[in-house]
């Protein structure tokens, strides 16, 4: 189970019953139940959520209230989901959203 490498940390411990498993880029992640996808990912690996459609720059949540559209991810095969508005669900498959580009760039 990948516990990630985030610049954020939970300030309160979580009891085992309160976690669920989602998949981020096909890796299982243990995340708190009931949080938004954005909070789950930021607590796990906040590297970037998507690339801007216009110039493929790395982007991550900015406003966390549904305004900026910088947290777009693919959830269960559906693109353009706002991670800051979507609650996590057990087994959810989350992927970064970008056009197929060379990640090494």
């Amino acid at each position: 189970m990948n516990r990630g490498n985030s610049t954020f940390t939970r300030s309160e411990p979580l009891s085992g019953d309160d976690t669920i498993t989602i998949f981020f880029e096909e890796t299982a992640c243990e995340v708190p139940a009931g949080v938004t996808v954005a909070a789950a990912l930021l607590g796990h690996d906040d590297h970037h959520f998507c690339r801007s459609a216009a110039d493929q720059e790395k982007r991550a949540p900015h406003c966390l209230m549904g305004v900026c559209f910088e947290c777009l991810v693919e959830i269960d095969g559906v693109k353009n989901r706002q991670a800051c508005l979507e609650p996590v669900r057990e087994g959810m498959q989350v992927k970064r959203q970008h056009e197929p580009v060379d990640e090494s760039k």
Partner: peptide, 22 residues
Amino acid sequence: TLPGVMTCGGMSNLYKDSTLVP
């Protein structure tokens, strides 16, 4: 536009949602 630049309100939401802090 860099990842890691967030609004103060965004940080507040993050904490309210999931107790996350930097």
